[in-house]
Design a binder for these strands. Sequence first.
RNA 1: GCCCCGGUGGUGAAAUUGGUAGACACGCAGGACUUAAAAUCCUGUUUGCAGCAAUGCAAGUAACGGUUCAAUUCCGUUCCGGGGCACCA
Length: 797
Amino acid sequence: MEYDFRKIEQEWQEKWKDKKVYEVSNDSPKLSFYVLDMFPYPSGAGLHVGHPLGYIASDIYSRYKRLKGFNVLHPMGFDSFGLPAEQYALETGQHPAVTTEKNIATFKAQLDKIGFCYDWSREVRTSDPLYYKWTQKIFLDLFNSYFCNSCKQAKPITALVKKYETKGGSNFTADEWNAYTKAEQEEILMSRRLAFSKYGEVNWCEALGTVLANDEVVNGVSERGGHPVEKKKMRQWYLRITAYADRLLQGLETVDFTEPMKEMQRNWIGRSEGCEMEFVLRDSELGIKVYTTRPDTIFGVDFLVLAPEHELVNQITTASEKEKVETYLTYVKSRSDRERQAEVKQITGCFTGAYAINPFNEKPIPIWIAEYVLAGYGTGAIMAVPCGDQRDFNFAAHFDIPVTNIIGDAFNWNEANPTKDATLSNSDFLNGMLMKDAIGVAINKIEELGIGKRKVNYRMRDAGFSRQRYWGEPFPIIWQDGIAIPLNENELPLELPYAKKYRAGPNGEGPLANMEEWSRIFSLEGEGARETSTMPGYAGSSWYFLRYMDPHNNETFCDRKASDYWNQVDVYVGGTEHAVGHLLYSRMWTKVLYDLGYISFDEPFKKLVNQGMITGCSYFINLISAYEEPIEVNIFNNSNKPIIRKSSGNLLYASADFEIPEMTRSIIHKEKTYFNVSFIMKHRLKNIQEYIENSNLGGYRLPKNNLEKYLAKVGEEYAEFKLEDVIFDENLRSITGEEVLVVEMQVEKMSKSKHNTINPDELCNKYGADTFRMSSNSKCNTASPEGLRCCLANKIL
RNA sequence: GCCCCGGUGGUGAAAUUGGUAGACACGCAGGACUUAAAAUCCUGUUUGCAGCAAUGCAAGUAACGGUUCAAUUCCGUUCCGGGGCACCA
């Protein structure tokens, strides 16, 4: 008897739908249980096999808990705002709303085919005005709140205003406050709001006239077109996540995440204790603030280093060094933060000509600028102690800066020794002390002399919250005379206006700036303009787990009764790639909503399960010059996988494992054993969709159409792959003598942008959902469905 | 560069207070059944060497070193792969 999975599965899936078996109620005597998957971004490529990997596990768990008698909330939705839809719109002219709608329909059909037990009546979409109305509302709550430093929680900004009006603030009296202009008051308030605006840097590409995501910048130039990219200062919105740094750390103790996951979050927050102190310049009144965790090394300071962007660089640079500094600043402007920190072997820097005075021994200290010091961390300036810090040591060695030894024999003059256990020498009042004991002594002295103070520092920065894009939530903000005025709640949702074009606005502004009829506002108070940037992808995803609890509520984002009943997400399933982004943001939002009294818990996810990284195979075409050494072809006897390896250790393609497309292989070895491999290849190659794009990896990402064309040309005599007149024979040697073309496979994160997605539909169609679900249990393993299908067929029939 | 994770047969993988490495399954090979095929069942399947054979010996968990009676497991160094590094989601 045939195992007709199509009929069986269709029959049951329809039954489930008709009887609404998966709809759950908020009003149940049963205990609640909340199982959540990270919702997908509905990309044009459709669901790929990576998605169901986690979804299947959580689906099984939901069914299990349901059978155990729990009322189980197991919803699904779509993170439907985002950059890819906008880029697609730029290329094809199709409106993101249209393509998003279409993609979601595809996703839902695919998910249903696999037979998940979602309660679709609770579906959320972040791009739905009825959803983002509440994203905007929560933004307004953030805007209208400040972090109270004494009670360590969010409070309404009105309370702060009241305090300023009656008692004044730290730098001003109540009378002074009341005498300030509206603009001056707003500026002070802006420095306290949880959602606030200030100037920040973006990747600006002059040639494209647009701001680019880090993703779109490769090696300092734009991914498309290879145009130069530089930093540009623009007014941006931020979330004051740093205010919550300590609570985000403490909260980790109360949740069930894996230890590495917690560790990543701790490292990201990067709490350190130390002190901030000021070095006064030798020939001026100016002072430079540095942050250090090692004030015990104060007598070993041989130079100061400022970030090139430091505000004092221009003022302190001496006339004689001006030109060199300018040149260096130009160089740094083209470098990303990552590059600046990554390339340790290449030491760069520039002397400013200025000297600071060590407050303890009056010694003049040269002031340098260097790209390894970042403006965003600490004070953007460091005191360099070559004998205790390797990077400082390398810098001193490279520029011939004399080194002071303060740790005696513990320093060997060949490399720095970062110990805290050495005994200090050459250190005046700290002489003879262990370094770790001296830290506190030094800080006390610094505070006593009034040149600095104890300080806790965080590596984490406030989170950038505006994007110069179209396809995102508009800010419910109107700018009037430089003051940000929030909309009233009853004016929400502020709908995203329908755009016909998606080009960037003037001066790096978002596309909305092109729509004057929308952005210009006339009111009783005068003329104003809407904020034209939009919110980032993580805005909608920071609170979506709450909306599932009460998805149709028009009065509030989630009724308190509903959130009390469902409470925290009991099990949250998703990949580790969200360890520090989405997870930290949603944890912060939850804490704010808790502080403001909307919900009763301050951690969103009780338990987090990582389903493992999703990877796929990317195929590249590589051109290998004939002048390089020949390639060895090893075909293992028992293996389906021929390994092609360049015999040379040449850097460019050294020891890469190449996988040959099926047809080539079947010519090299016409054996039955390759049948199964052919299947794998077929599925993978089918989903490589786009045209050759020149990547900077020395290869070409391989498009489906072209590849099939190449494969079609494979003849009996030799395999001919044509690209730019290169011909490739069966031994993978060039027959024109010029270059050799090889298809290379690399394992990468599975993502649409890498053209390496696998579509689960094909697997479902071929083998049926139950087979697919079983095979996905462990990992995406396209070799095994055939066997599993047989196994199921036997069990069911 | 920094933070986190991983590396075990042809394949997916098991194996935790450190105790027989490769369970279970796929694939493959051989056999049974069949006119034949599919399905099913049985046997074998880490590698090398020796043996007609049962079997025996040796090596083996990325590499090297260490701790230990004993290491896939703990420690150190290195190599390789993956994820993240703040505007991809």
